[in-house]
Measured scan of single mutants.
Amino acid sequence: ETFPLDVLVNTAAEDLPRGVDPSRKENFLSDEDFKAVFGMTRSAFANLPLWKQQNLKKEKGLF
């Protein structure tokens, strides 16, 4: 299941849709939104070091 970017960005855990893991908001973006937000594919993002993934998520309001 995916959700629009505005539902996930800068949203407190208690305000997220049911079933969304607040530590993994990026997994609930569509592939198109994911690429638009991070400028890379999911596989490229997954290959980044964890610290870099976290920094990007913070920068984009998805942490």
Rank of each mutant, 00 (worst) to 15 (best):
A44I: 10
V7C: 13
S23R: 11
R42W: 02
T11D: 06
R42S: 02
N27K: 15
N47R: 13
M40V: 03
V37N: 02
E26Q: 06
D21N: 08
P22L: 04
D15E: 10
K57W: 07
F38L: 07
L48D: 00
R18N: 14
R24W: 08
L48G: 00
S30T: 13
E32T: 12
L48M: 11
R24G: 07
G61A: 02
D31Q: 06
P17A: 03
L56Y: 05
R18D: 14
S23Y: 14
A46C: 10
G19C: 11
Q54F: 12
A44H: 10
L50A: 12
D15N: 12
Q53A: 03
E26W: 02
F28G: 04
V9C: 09
D21R: 03
T41W: 03
L5N: 03
A36S: 13
D31S: 05
G19H: 09
S43R: 12
P49T: 05
N10D: 08
E32S: 10
P4L: 05
R24K: 13
E59K: 09
K52H: 12
K25L: 15
R18Y: 11
D33N: 04
Q53T: 01
E14I: 11
F38I: 01
F38N: 00
L16R: 02
D6V: 09
A44G: 07
D21I: 06
Q53W: 00
S30C: 06
S30D: 07
K35P: 01
T41C: 08
L29A: 01
K25T: 10
A12M: 10
A36L: 13
F63Y: 14
L48R: 00
N27A: 14
D21C: 09
S43N: 11
M40A: 00
E59R: 09
N10T: 10
L5W: 08
R18A: 15
V37W: 02
P49Q: 02
A44E: 14
E1G: 11
E59G: 05
P17C: 08
A13V: 14
L5I: 12
K57D: 01
N27V: 11
V9K: 10
A46D: 09
F63P: 05
F28A: 09
S43E: 13
D31M: 05
F45G: 00
A13P: 15
S23I: 09
A36Q: 15
T11G: 14
E26N: 02
G39M: 09
N10I: 07
N47K: 15
P4A: 08
T2D: 03
F34P: 00
L62V: 05
A12N: 12
V9S: 07
V37D: 00
R18K: 15
A46M: 12
N55L: 14
D33G: 03
